[in-house]
Nucleic acid binder design. Structure first.
Length: 503
RNA sequence: CGGGGUGUAGCUCAGCCUGGCAGAGCGCUACGUUCGGGACGUAGAGGCCACAGGUUCAAAUCCUGUCACCCCGACCA
């Protein structure tokens, strides 16, 4: 971060609620905000992220285009009342985030700051020994125009990632574009009502009629911010709820509950938009473009042959809301997409002027005109990254920390430390560490050597020094590389110098 | 919030089905031996069986409720 000219700061965790009302997120973040009140009943929130705070800080200092660009960052605790904390360090109510925010004069300038942060992230993950894949992502509750996640691929991950082996396209399933299989070409035929007793699912219906699933329309019911939504999508596809939410510009999209389905008189298993009134109809292009699709007749046990959009029904909104799956065609090059699971390590966003407008971060340009700053924000989950570092750097005996992120440079196992000459050598060693600016974890417990060696392996500092009567006889300390097991006996001075130069 | 699971010694767990003395391994304490890749012997200490009710002659065990934690879904770094 410092390397790209970012400035470290530290913001309060305790924020007045007014700041969050100003940005509108007191409402939009809803339940995930930890709220509290002081003795005078003034409202506060514990910061779940710091777009508001950073914008407020920036608004006090940025006046002219000459003040820009500015990137501020901090490494600080965030609080989120998560619906379900889980997985040890993977999802916490209280976690540490490295969060950075850039302020620029215009979108082109943001692209430069964004690219710099992006490149810095690539270097950070490489140095920490965590293999990540940058993927296109949905920006979720943070908002903004464009965003990319850095994803650590692991079967334990919470996210589904689609990867294109052909062109390198990579995206979170929430966001992923793809080309649905083509429709079966046909000229429109007259609509026809037929009996389909007991056929509830698309698979049943298709095999009952001897047609392909892509020759049907699937009806799915949702509730978007309390409003009923009827979704029509070709039978061979599933709905991506994130895309649906974005298309509707809704805050919350959930599958419709049974009471609501009943109240609205919807016939699950035989529903369609033909003749439907009283609710908004959202259609995927696949349902609109194909001809002669089989749809529900809105009567249990009956379906309609040859329904056609425009003639028989009409969508209020047409938007791509299909969920990409393994083996779907890449939208760019047509190759079959692959699916992997992954864990989100970091996320970079082009925020735009969302917060600079609501909080009031403005600058005067060369012409003396006032504009809101164009912002970007960049986060890394520290605990989550810790989990990934260990996942990516361990062997059967324990952790194998990359030197760049090891808690200590050296693990010193002291044997027979009660012997005077061993103790004297240890004092000398510690003095050398101090002089060299190295940190050491010294194990001088009166336990057996085996226990201490096992613990050293488990904790996994990159280098282990063994200091005892036997090593001193051989001329100093035994130096052992945690990963390779390579062992040498060196003098105290040589050993410390070797670690220092390797760091 | 919906679904599933678990709460017993410091830790990991058995015991619960089929009610009847509170258990094991590890750890801990003492002594002796051992001592550079998780040693051994002997002797010990250690419990409101999550909590609150109920059933019963008798409850860790059966029933009801509460709480906490873990796992699966919606949220995200």
């Amino acid at each position: 971060m410092d390397g790209i000219g970012a400035q470290e700061v530290r913001l309060p965790e305790l924020n007045p609620i007014e700041l969050w009302e100003q940005s509108g997120r007191a409402q939009t973040m809803g339940q995930t905000l930890f709220r509290l009140a002081d003795r005078k009943e003034r409202g506060f929130v514990l910061g779940p992220t710091h777009e508001e705070g950073m914008s407020f800080l920036a608004s006090r200092h940025i006046q002219s285009y000459r003040d820009l660009p500015v990137t501020l960052y901090q490494i600080e605790t965030k609080f989120r009342d998560e619906p379900r904390p889980r997985g040890g360090l993977v999802r916490l109510r209280e976690f540490t985030m490295k969060d950075a925010y850039s302020f620029d004069a215009g979108w082109d300038a943001l692209d430069v700051s964004y690219a710099a942060a992006y490149e810095a992230y690539v270097r950070i993950f490489a140095r920490a020994g965590v293999p990540v894949v940058p993927v296109a992502a949905d920006s979720g509750a943070i908002g903004g125009k464009e965003s990319q996640e850095f994803v650590f691929l692991t079967d334990d991950g919470e996210d589904e990632i689609l990867l294109c082996p052909g062109c390198g396209y990579a995206a979170n399933a929430e966001k992923a574009d793809f080309s649905p299989p083509p429709a079966v070409p046909a000229a429109p035929l007259p609509m026809e009502r037929i009996a389909t007793p007991g056929q509830k699912t698309i698979a049943e219906l298709a095999s009952f009629l001897g047609i392909e699933q892509r020759q049907t329309v699937k009806a799915v019911f949702y509730k978007a911010d309390g409003e009923p939504i009827f979704v029509a999508i070709r039978g061979d596809l599933d709905v991506n709820e994130v895309k649906l939410k974005n298309a509707l510009k809704a805050q919350d999209v959930d599958p419709m509950d049974e009471q609501m389905v009943k109240r609205l008189g919807l016939v699950a298993g035989s529903a369609s938009a033909v003749g439907l009134t009283g609710m908004k109809v959202v259609a995927d292009p696949t349902a609109v473009e194909a001809a002669n699709l089989v749809a529900g007749a809105n009567e249990d046990g009956f379906h309609l042959l040859n329904t056609n959009h425009g003639r028989d029904w009409k969508a209020d909104l047409v938007a791509s809301i299909g969920l990409a799956r393994a083996d779907d065609a890449c939208a760019t090059c047509g190759s079959a997409l692959q699916v992997r699971r992954g864990m989100e390590m970091g996320h970079v966003f082009k925020l735009g002027t969302l917060y600079s407008e609501s909080i009031g971060v403005n600058y005067l340009d060369e012409a003396g005109e006032r504009h809101p700053c164009v912002m970007g924000c960049y986060g890394i989950g520290v605990e989550r990254m810790l989990a990934a570092i260990i996942e990516a750097n361990h062997d059967a005996n324990g952790i194998t920390w990359p030197a760049s992120v090891a808690p200590y440079d050296v693990h010193v196992v002291v044997l027979n430390g009660d012997q005077e000459h061993v103790d004297a050598a240890l004092n000398e060693l510690e003095a050398e560490f101090a002089k060299a600016g190295l940190t050491a974890l010294v194990d001088d417990r009166p336990d057996s050597a085996g226990i201490k060696f096992k613990d050293a392996d488990l904790l996994g500092m990159p280098v282990r020094f063994t200091l005892g009567p036997r090593s001193l006889e051989k001329g100093g300390v035994e130096v052992r590389d945690r990963r390779t097991g390579e062992t040498n006996v060196l003098t105290i001075g040589e050993a410390v110098a070797a670690v220092r130069s390797a760091r």
